[in-house]
Amino acid sequence: MATGGRRGAAAAPLLVAVAALLLGAAGHLYPGEVCPGMDIRNNLTRLHELENCSVIEGHLQILLMFKTRPEDFRDLSFPKLIMITDYLLLFRVYGLESLKDLFPNLTVIRGSRLFFNYALVIFEMVHLKELGLYNLMNITRGSVRIEKNNELCYLATIDWSRILDSVEDNYIVLNKDDNEECGDICPGTAKGKTNCPATVINGQFVERCWTHSHCQKVCPTICKSHGCTAEGLCCHSECLGNCSQPDDPTKCVACRNFYLDGRCVETCPPPYYHFQDWRCVNFSFCQDLHHKCKNSRRQGCHQYVIHNNKCIPECPSGYTMNSSNLLCTPCLGPCPKVCHLLEGEKTIDSVTSAQELRGCTVINGSLIINIRGGNNLAAELEANLGLIEEISGYLKIRRSYALVSLSFFRKLRLIRGETLEIGNYSFYALDNQNLRQLWDWSKHNLTITQGKLFFHYNPKLCLSEIHKMEEVSGTKGRQERNDIALKTNGDQASCENELLKFSYIRTSFDKI
């Protein structure tokens, strides 16, 4: 039985969820670079991206490699990797027998973001014989899940209580170790020597080791999670996991709180800001991140802002960003909400898709409305799209047979046209069989910064309504002859009103 693990408890099935942008060198404390989270699957090609990484700022997932063999891993080693800020997950990587050479110096898994409450997941690794993470000293947050690894031993010899604050939620089941077939031998045991430290858990006094050649490092209890030197002297209180010299914040392997210019500090002093819960960055760093993602459509890219001495992905609820200094300031009234469309555009074809934009005031991208039916549609669209004030790209209304009016965009005031449909149009209306009105132009103002209007096959939309939009939106004169079809717009509506004058002759039985 794995020490510190839980057996036999019912657990939810383990679901495996399925960018080499360097964020800056980590400095003297770390020998390499800070790398983003990685999802490495199918083959070993991307694994080489770990070569210079000291910190993975995010998670590391290595999974679904069915053609790899043990010899493929023999020359692979990433000794610079010290810390993973989120979680480490391995799933069905064939041929991998140990992690001792792959990650010989991995010391800390912070667990800032977890995989279903777990910071370390080893699942269905069919050839893994031992973990071998002999320098792993601290899992700051989260638990361990090690399950269905039929060859995995050296679990009962690990004292997880020396690595985690609590072992109650560890789930370590259905491994070879369960069948008591392992016969784990710690260093020196074969020669009758006791080389590794022994600890007591559940009444068992057991030597602690990761492999037959690597003991588990056990520091004096007084050192807590700070770690200790090879001689057993406690590291500085700002260290986490390990250090090369005692009581020196510049000799830590990793930091308990924050890293700044080669030393570990309790908090980031001005003019620095907390970033990702582990390091200090200056304003320029946060500003660069903001600008890199301002026009990016890459998933996970955030326009970072500053709030409460932190550089964070977005302002919290009730705050909006001051564009001059990136500071989050309290909103006066309802907060603006910028919604970034991942692929640059979004099609609204149902109430469900409209709900995804609920509360958005600025759309960074283009909207395509293609709704053919739905219950209580006008009210639903207004509830979900009615706060949109600005669209950076274009607005396209296409084959939306259920629409009679666009009044559900009740606050839309600006279409920038930074991206144009077919390279020309910022407003595009095609084949809307029941569209009769755009907006009530006596109450609604709309500016279209650039781009043209396109109207074709809107049989109940009168040309007068379209011409009014040209005047109000500032697009009059931009359109070419064929942009607004004269014969297919309003051709099934009563669009022309003329005053009919009647004269009559009164007659009676005795007068003409």
Rank of each mutant, 00 (worst) to 15 (best):
D248M: 07
L60Q: 00
S98M: 02
E57R: 03
L90C: 15
K217C: 06
G203K: 14
N135C: 05
I122A: 11
I122P: 03
R141Q: 04
P79V: 05
C280L: 00
L96W: 02
Y171S: 09
D165A: 04
I122V: 08
P270W: 13
L332E: 15
K80L: 10
D184T: 04
S225E: 06
N149L: 00
T194M: 15
K80D: 02
L44R: 12
L120A: 05
D72M: 13
T229W: 10
Y272S: 11
I40T: 13
R46T: 03
G111D: 00
I163H: 01
V144M: 13
C182T: 01
S237I: 06
H28F: 10
L289P: 03
L99H: 01
I158H: 02
R256I: 09
V93P: 00
P316T: 03
S161I: 05
D288S: 10
T157I: 03
P270I: 07
T229Y: 10
N257S: 12
R113A: 11
D177F: 13
P269N: 02
V173P: 04
I158G: 01
L63E: 02
C335K: 01
Q204H: 07
K251S: 05
E238G: 14
M38R: 05
C328V: 01
N150C: 10
L174W: 14
T199L: 09
P31S: 09
N43Y: 11
I163K: 00
R162M: 10
V253L: 15
S237N: 14
Q276R: 11
I139T: 02
N43H: 10
P270R: 09
D277A: 14
L29G: 04
C228W: 00
L152Q: 03
T140Y: 07
E314S: 10
N150I: 15
T267P: 09
N282R: 03
R298F: 09
Y273W: 15
D261T: 07
V126I: 08
L76A: 11
S161F: 12
V218K: 06
P313V: 05
N309C: 06
G318S: 10
D177C: 04
H302F: 06
M38C: 05
S237W: 09
F123N: 02
G32L: 13
D177Y: 04
Y304V: 13
N202V: 02
G37D: 14
G37K: 03
G95W: 12
G142A: 02
D247H: 03
R41S: 02
T85S: 08
E71A: 13
L128M: 09
N195R: 06
G241L: 01
S112M: 06
W210F: 01
C335S: 04
L155G: 02
C328I: 00
C234Q: 01
S112V: 13
A230L: 05
T45W: 13
M125L: 03
L131M: 01
C311L: 10
A198D: 08
L240W: 00
M137K: 07
G333I: 11
E71F: 05
Q204C: 03
G32F: 08
K310T: 12
H226R: 10
K67Y: 07
D178W: 13
N170R: 10
N150V: 12
P79H: 07
T250C: 07
I109H: 00
N43T: 06
N43I: 05
R141T: 00
R69C: 06
T107D: 02
P316G: 05
S98A: 11
V173G: 05
F66H: 01
H214V: 13
N202Y: 13
S112K: 06
L114V: 03
N309M: 07
H290D: 03
D72S: 07
R69I: 08
G300Y: 08
K217I: 14
E124T: 03
Y87E: 00
L174C: 12
K310C: 06
P269I: 15
L174T: 15
D184S: 10
C315L: 00
S161D: 01
